[in-house]
């Protein structure tokens, strides 16, 4: 009997062991001639399998799932935003590449200008002479001024991140946070409604953050009461206004009716509570109807 034959038998016994179809003793009974070689290898394999049979922490798995689905949603929204342009003008698909190329060329031009200016200064040596070359400075404003110079979109993004953290941790969301968010949303809506041309990338970012905060606020609305509920409602209205300015009609989240028991193993019919609440007026929206089940 050759070496290949033993490896076939060993693999057959190993697969049966790992899949729980047969114990080591049963395998040894089936192949008595190979007992001496099979047994130590199968015992070792059993120990390795037991040692590596490690379950990930439940909360890590669930947190990862939320991020995974949020990322999938963001990609879908971006696709939906770009698809009308892609149909009408196929060259739009190259827009991100074009923008990146322009940015790289711009950076190279600035670097060249800086190096040339510094060289000029160094070579001239006698700065007080006739030639005065100033090196290029990209930082025209101080850092403090820059941080206070946030755009409305950046303000909303920052506040939604705060809101997301608070909602995810299950902690209370202070009214002042909600009021701040409402104010930032109002500014963003005003900017979107204004005469200034908003770039495609900013529009996509605004859509993404507005949809997300809409979902978060809806989630929060279900748990709020009193002053906080009023603040949530006001923020929701402001978020709706932003979505409206972006040409998106938000749809209310379906009410979750928990099934009596969680589904331990996934099946093709399994689904989650997570469904985008903001769907564009136009464009593909081929998402299945939500059938919520509690997260495991």
């Amino acid at each position: 009997m050759g070496r290949g034959e033993f490896e076939e038998i060993f693999e057959e016994c190993l697969s049966a062991l790992l899949e729980g179809r047969r114990s080591i003793e049963e395998s040894l009974f089936l192949y008595p001639a190979w007992r001496g070689r099979l047994e130590p290898l199968l015992r070792t394999a059993e120990e390795i399998a037991a040692g590596l049979d490690e379950a990930p922490p439940h909360y890590v798995k669930e947190r990862g799932l939320q991020r995974f689905l949020e990322s999938a949603r963001a990609r879908r929204r971006l696709r939906q935003m770009l698809s009308p342009w892609a149909k009408e003008a196929p060259w739009w698909r190259w827009a991100p590449t074009g923008l990146a190329a322009v940015a790289v060329l711009g950076a190279l031009a600035i670097m060249s200008a800086t190096i040339l200016a510094e060289d000029g200064q160094r070579l001239s040596g006698r700065a007080s002479d006739s030639v005065s070359v100033k090196p290029y400075s990209a930082t025209l404003v101080s850092t403090a001024a820059a941080t206070s110079d946030q755009t409305p979109l950046e303000r909303v993004q920052e506040r939604v991140a705060v809101l997301e953290d608070a909602v995810r941790q299950g902690g209370p969301v202070e009214v002042v946070v909600l009021e701040d968010l409402e104010e930032a949303n109002n500014e963003l809506a005003a900017e979107l409604d204004g005469p200034a041309e908003i770039g495609l990338i900013e529009q996509v970012a605004a859509l993404s953050v507005a949809s997300r905060q809409y979902e978060l606020l809806q989630e929060l609305q279900a748990q709020s009461s009193g002053v906080q509920a009023r603040a949530v409602e006001a923020s929701l209205a402001a978020a709706e206004e932003v979505l409206h300015e972006l040409g998106v009609r938000p749809t209310p989240a379906p009410e979750a009716t928990p099934s009596p028991e969680p589904t331990p193993s996934p099946s093709p019919t399994a689904s989650t509570t997570l469904e985008p609440t903001a769907t564009p007026d136009e464009g593909p929206t081929s998402t299945p109807p939500p059938t919520p089940t509690p997260a495991q």
Partner: peptide, 25 residues
């Protein structure tokens, strides 16, 4: 592949523990 969330969730739940174990190993 079409972006169906239920399907993505299912794939995640099916493979997450196995990928985790592989990477841990």
């Amino acid at each position: 592949k079409t972006g169906d969330e239920a399907a993505l969730t299912e794939l995640y739940r099916l493979y997450y523990p196995r990928v985790y174990r592989y990477i841990l190993a």
